[in-house]
Amino acid sequence: MSSSDIFISETIGTAVLILLGGGVCAAVTFKRSKAFNAGWVAIAFGWGFAVLTGAYIAAKSGAHLNPAVTIGVAIKGGIEWNQVPVYIAGEMLGAMIGAVLVWVTYMGQFQAHLSDPEVLADHTGEEGLVDQSAAPKAGPVLGIFSTGPEIRNAAQNLLTEIIATSVLVLSILTLGLSDNGKGVGVIGTLLVALVVTGIGLSLGGPTGYAINPVRDLGPRIVHALLPLRNKGGSDWGYAWIPVVGPLIGGALAGGIYQVAFA
């Protein structure tokens, strides 16, 4: 498989993943959405279906959609290490495109939400505009784009992401993600989507379960760049955890696979 095939497949698949995953977060967040307040179960299943759809679309490249998966597969020996940057570049670009598409889809809702005095009061402590010079760590729409912890403890948050990502990647490797980018097959892809849903329901509560560096970093960059009045901060102080944690988790899963199953 050529590098261009890998790059295009991963870009499109990851864009769809983030469009649908970020889309369910937006749908649950915005008052002017028919899914407003649908809750965590809707988010967990929405992200599971997002993985399912993106993975079917990107089947040609093995549908990694996630640098943690790419690292785990490379450690297993499923791809050459010189292909890893191509996978990750496609995944990163796709994540940013998907985040932009969420904004485009919900443009009216973003505008209404960020001009709602009640929403702004929740993030400033009083009615009025968000002070961009002293913006809160997490702005009022950041959760649509990226993750954040319920209890801010770097060690705990990092460990949570490592554990959750290890479960994801080890499940993919043991399902038989094959060499040469052939992927897990139709049934395997469905099972991976169910695993992602299960991780969201079981392990997603503490941090919002990034379990994918580009799922968090790409949309966080888009949040920082979008011309959204009163959007607040992008919480860059936390941003390293959903990148480093999943990368460690993916590598750990690859190592466990080599020791226990290879």
Rank of each mutant, 00 (worst) to 15 (best):
218 G>R: 03
231 K>T: 02
221 I>Y: 04
248 I>Q: 14
253 A>E: 04
221 I>R: 06
240 W>Q: 11
246 P>R: 10
228 L>V: 11
250 G>I: 05
252 L>G: 15
250 G>K: 06
244 V>M: 07
243 V>S: 00
215 R>A: 02
220 R>K: 13
249 G>H: 01
217 L>W: 06
228 L>P: 07
218 G>D: 12
217 L>S: 03
250 G>P: 13
252 L>C: 13
217 L>I: 01
242 P>K: 14
247 L>M: 15
226 L>D: 05
243 V>A: 03
229 R>A: 15
253 A>C: 09
233 G>Y: 07
223 H>D: 04
215 R>Q: 07
226 L>K: 01
218 G>A: 06
219 P>G: 14
251 A>V: 09
233 G>V: 00
253 A>N: 03
235 D>Y: 15
241 I>C: 03
220 R>Y: 08
247 L>H: 10
247 L>D: 13
246 P>M: 12
251 A>L: 07
216 D>R: 04
245 G>A: 13
248 I>T: 07
249 G>N: 01
232 G>L: 04
246 P>A: 12
222 V>N: 10
249 G>V: 04
240 W>V: 08
251 A>D: 09
235 D>Q: 08
225 L>Y: 12
222 V>W: 07
214 V>L: 08
232 G>N: 04
214 V>Q: 08
218 G>L: 10
244 V>Q: 12
228 L>T: 12
247 L>E: 13
248 I>W: 08
245 G>K: 04
237 G>M: 02
215 R>Y: 00
242 P>Y: 08
231 K>Y: 00
248 I>K: 09
218 G>N: 09
229 R>T: 10
248 I>P: 10
244 V>C: 03
250 G>L: 05
229 R>Q: 14
222 V>C: 07
245 G>L: 09
247 L>V: 14
234 S>E: 14
247 L>R: 13
252 L>S: 13
236 W>I: 01
230 N>V: 05
231 K>H: 01
252 L>Y: 12
214 V>T: 15
253 A>K: 01
223 H>Y: 09
241 I>P: 04
249 G>A: 06
